[in-house]
């Protein structure tokens, strides 16, 4: 358990270092996705399965896809630029780090001892009860945050398209 944690922590730190030192935006995003997946494995090892699943689905899935879309929108998609994206050096580093994580997950499944698994079900229940009990004001505040976020993103994106049409 501790060894798995330290390996995942090393993967997270290495990937984060590559994120902040890389010059290619798409490569940095690949490394950031690997860092987020390693972080979700750490969440699982800490006993927070729900947070681990949300980290992969929302952070690694939705938010990173949003970033990648914006990077694609920003730069002109020249053919030679795409060719550099799919070169060997672009994906070999993230692949090695992801393979390390895959080996860890395989070891976790094969070893069969899931000390955090046994307490999972009442924990989810406790999270739900606490979320809609004492933390209900936080849920309301989150909804009040998400609605201006939606309107703001719509507004910023809409003016861009109308200006692009006019000029």
């Amino acid at each position: 358990m501790e060894t798995l944690f330290y390996i995942a922590a090393a993967v997270t730190i290495l990937a984060t270092l590559r994120v902040i030192t890389h010059v290619h935006a798409v490569h940095a995003l690949l490394y950031l996705v690997v860092a987020l997946i390693a972080l979700s494995l750490i969440f699982y090892l800490l006993g927070a399965q729900f947070a681990a699943a949300l980290e992969i689905i929302i952070y690694g899935g939705a938010i990173m896809v949003l970033f990648i879309f914006v990077v694609m929108l920003l730069g002109p998609l020249a053919v030679e630029q795409e060719r550099t994206w799919f070169s060997l050096s672009a994906w070999i580093g993230p692949s090695i780090l992801a393979l390390v994580l895959l080996g860890e997950v395989g070891y976790l499944i094969a070893s069969g001892d899931h000390p955090t698994m046994a307490v999972a079900e009442p924990r989810q229940k406790a999270i739900s009860i606490a979320l809609y009990g004492p933390y209900i004001i936080g849920v309301e505040l989150a909804s009040m945050l998400l609605l201006p976020g939606l309107i703001g993103a719509y507004h910023l994106g809409r003016r861009l398209s109308s200006e692009a049409r006019s000029c």
Partner: peptide, 29 residues
């Protein structure tokens, strides 16, 4: 379970922040 509930709120904050900030990035570029 309070840690995981705060994680949920941080996730919400990050989603809202990223959607607005990426719109601003597109405008600036």
């Amino acid at each position: 379970v309070d840690g995981e509930i705060m994680f949920l709120f941080i996730l919400t904050l990050a989603a809202a922040e990223v959607s607005v900030a990426l719109g601003i990035v597109l405008q600036l570029s």
